[in-house]
Simulated scan of single mutants.
Amino acid sequence: MSIEANLEKIERLTSKVWRSYSKEDPLGHLSFNEYDYLKAIQAARVPIRLTDLAKELEVTKPSATNMVKRLERKGLVLRVSCSEDARSKRVMLTEKARAPLESESEIYTIIAQKLKVHLSEQEFDALNTLLTKALR
């Protein structure tokens, strides 16, 4: 089987698990782009400068600004002043976004367990190593 077919199967497995385990997903109404912004802000671990967010997502700063304003209106992010540069703003998640995003890790644990069923411990470790290397 080709890598493309296997990647599609992983995507379908992921979608199936998401549908099964997140019936009450409070972020389910978001567009892919909105969700992607939230994940990038979450990955930053500390409030991220708007310029850095735009760079991370490979979008223009005006696009990032517009999306952050939209997410702010939905109560999912806050813009705060940057202590290093008064002209700059940093973006952080609100609790309304933080809690559901943190609970998502359970979904990925379930997906990992479903993959692990068909692999030995050594194979599973090798898969993880290869994915880590490929996704740098």
Rank of each mutant, 00 (worst) to 15 (best):
K61G: 00
F124L: 12
L76R: 07
M1F: 10
V80C: 02
I48K: 01
E56L: 00
R90W: 09
K89E: 04
E58Q: 00
L27R: 05
D125I: 11
V80Y: 00
T132Y: 10
R70D: 13
K133H: 11
L78H: 08
A44Q: 01
A97G: 08
A54P: 02
P62Y: 01
G28H: 07
F32E: 15
G28A: 11
V80G: 02
N6F: 14
Q113A: 08
E72K: 14
R45W: 06
R136H: 06
M67H: 03
E8I: 03
E102P: 04
P26V: 02
P100Y: 12
A86S: 15
E58F: 00
R136L: 10
S20F: 10
A126R: 10
E58T: 00
K9E: 14
S15D: 13
S120H: 02
Y108C: 01
Y37K: 07
K23R: 15
A43W: 01
K69Q: 09
A44D: 01
K39G: 01
K61A: 05
E84N: 11
I41R: 03
C82R: 07
Y108A: 02
A86R: 13
E104R: 12
L119N: 03
L38M: 06
L78Y: 10
H29R: 12
E102N: 14
P100N: 11
D125A: 15
H29D: 12
A43V: 01
L71D: 04
E72D: 11
S105G: 09
P62N: 01
V91I: 12
F32K: 14
L13D: 04
E56R: 04
V17D: 02
E8S: 13
Y108I: 02
T94D: 14
K133N: 08
L135D: 07
A44S: 10
E106N: 03
E24Y: 09
L7W: 11
E121L: 10
N128C: 14
P62S: 02
P100K: 13
Y37Q: 06
K39C: 12
E102Y: 13
E58I: 00
H29G: 09
L101H: 07
R70H: 10
F124C: 09
R98M: 12
L130Q: 09
S22K: 15
L131C: 12
H118G: 08
Q42C: 02
D85L: 02
A97P: 05
T109P: 02
K114V: 09
I41N: 02
A40Q: 09
V91P: 08
K96C: 00
Q113L: 10
L38K: 11
N128F: 12
T132M: 09
S20A: 15
K69Y: 08
K55F: 00
Q122V: 06
L78E: 09
N128A: 14
K116R: 15
R12G: 03
L27I: 03
A44T: 02
A126S: 11
K69F: 03
C82K: 04
A40Y: 02
E104K: 06
A134I: 07
L93Q: 08
L127Y: 03
T60S: 08
S2N: 15
K69G: 05
L30H: 14
S105F: 04
P62D: 01
T129E: 08
K55Q: 01
K133W: 10
R136D: 06
